[in-house]
Every structure is written in structure tokens, then in C-alpha cells.
């Protein structure tokens, strides 16, 4: 029974990871790739780590707190990485995909520049 649960969790995790990687190749611009990286890859790894934790807890009867710490850490750091990388990419001037429909941040930055010049 526990083996089935662990197997399902690990398979789900592997599937999420591979789909995240395909997303990284397929999306057209940096920001779309960040979507794939911060969501699918993170959830995949969290599924795998939960599977490992359950395996050691139920089969080997060992409680490994470090794995739980890892889950917490990955959860906390994924949005920070997405935020930092997208911000730096935008500031350096990486273009949005040419089929993007709106860009409020660009407008706001232009407005601020105009105010600073006056």
C-alpha cells in the first residue's frame, strides 16, 4: 500500500519535472520560461521529496526532518528567484514576446522618467 502511494507521488513528480523542462524549451520569451520554471519544476521536486519522506517514514521507520526543511526552502525560494530574474531581465531590456498584448510596467517606467526629467 505505502509502496503504491510512494510510486504515484514519485511518478507525478517526474512527470511535472519533465513537463516543466519542455515548457522551458517551448515558451517564446524569458518571462514565459520563468512560469514553467517556478511552477512545474518546483511542484515536481516537492512531490518527489514528499515521496522520499513517506518512504523513509513508513518503510524504514526513520523520521528525516531535513527533507521537510528542504521542501520549505524550495517553496520559499522559488518565487524569489522568479522575481529577481524577471526584474533584472526587464531592467536590462530583454524584450517581451512580439505577440504580448499589454505592458503596464513599461508605461509606468516611461511616466517616471518623464517626471524626473521635468
Amino acid at each position: 500500500m505505502t509502496e503504491i502511494v510512494v510510486s504515484i507521488l514519485i511518478l507525478l513528480g517526474g512527470a511535472f519535472s519533465i513537463l516543466g523542462s519542455i515548457g522551458i524549451v517551448r515558451f517564446p520569451d524569458v518571462y514565459g520560461r520563468l512560469h514553467a520554471a517556478t511552477k512545474s519544476a518546483t511542484l515536481g521536486v516537492i512531490c518527489i521529496i514528499i515521496g522520499t519522506f513517506l518512504y523513509f517514514l513508513l518503510v524504514q521507520e526513520l523520521f528525516i526532518g531535513k527533507l521537510l526543511l528542504t521542501i520549505l526552502f524550495v517553496f520559499m525560494t522559488a518565487p524569489v528567484v522568479g522575481f529577481m530574474v524577471s526584474k533584472s531581465a526587464y531592467n536590462v531590456g530583454v524584450k517581451l514576446w512580439d505577440q504580448s498584448i499589454q505592458d503596464d510596467l513599461g508605461k509606468a517606467i516611461k511616466k517616471a522618467e518623464k517626471k524626473a526629467r521635468q
Binding site: 513537463l19 519542455i22 515548457g23 515558451f27 511552477k39 512545474s40 505577440q99 504580448s100 505592458d103 503596464d104
Partner: peptide, 17 residues
């Protein structure tokens, strides 16, 4: 995200709001 990744054509309208 998986739906978008697996669809054969990228039919999306990204943007910053």
C-alpha cells in the same frame, strides 16, 4: 501550464498588468 505546454500551437496572449 501543462495544458499550454502540451498544446500543439502556442495560443497565448501574455502581458504585464
Amino acid at each position: 501550464v501543462i495544458k499550454i505546454v502540451l498544446s500543439p500551437k502556442l495560443n497565448i496572449k501574455p502581458g504585464i498588468i
